[in-house]
Amino acid sequence: MSGASSTRRFSRKRGPEHRPWLDWMVLPGLVAVGLVIAYPVVRTFQLATTDYNALSGMDPRPVGAENFQKLVDDPIFWEALRNTAVYTFGSVAVSALLGVLLALLTENLVGRSRILKTLLLTPWAVPFVVVAFLFRYMFDEQTGVVNAVLLQTGVIDEAVPWLVSSTWALPAVVAANVWTQTPFFFLVFSAALAAVPNEVIEAARVDRTRGWTMAYRIKLPYLRNAALVASLLMVISNFNDFAKIWAMTEGGPGYASTTFVVWVYRLAFTSFDLGYSSAIGVVWLVLLMVFAIAYVRLLRREA
């Protein structure tokens, strides 16, 4: 046996070999995915082009792009879009900022004081509905701790109806979301900070780099990829967040804190207008996909 043929045989044994029968093993997974993901998406696109109310007792009636035209002319759509953007990006921006600050401040904790890091992570473990009710009580106009503190410290002269104010309802819900989301960013940034090469830090120290300059010029650039990934995850999560908003304000007062998901829920499950709500769902899906693709491309370019 020649050496060359021996090598070929070895490669065939150990290297990647295409085994067609293995492809069939994917079939159950594909069927499951088709049932639970593809079917609802396709059905949503189909319903979006129909006039269909589940209470009418009538079959869906094809209307083409009428629902999308109605959407463009609907002032609630634009208000929900604005609220969704404020809730999604406002929460991510503030949470990321707080997360990175906390990560930098606690980076050098040693010994027992490291328990502080664990404590900072606890809001992440609290169920969303519990968070919502917690903040609902905190923001209560009559008995809430927020008004009590602000009145005591003289920041406000009279109690603010946080959750039933057209002005303050959305910021109050964002505040609750920031509280629960900051630990996630803190965790991600802490891990990323730990991965900054020691050589880089040492070199910077040799150059007498300290404090803010060290954080801003040396460490923060290393957090960029982590920030991108974490932000994308949280943007998608916030875009789809229902529990906190519903439990705190139900999208009100009026439509002051109504986001896409709350609006779709109302239309689909209390008015049963499945055609129109599916059209909103399609727009919602497309927006998320465009955002996700742009984000992933940005991430690849950074990499």
Partner: peptide, 20 residues
């Protein structure tokens, strides 16, 4: 069916009156 669809605009409008 009309009542199911109408409550949202009516009550959202009323809430706007009460809170803004």
């Amino acid at each position: 069916q009309a009542f199911s669809a109408a409550y949202d605009p009516v009550m959202a409008g009323l809430q706007r009156i009460l809170t803004s």
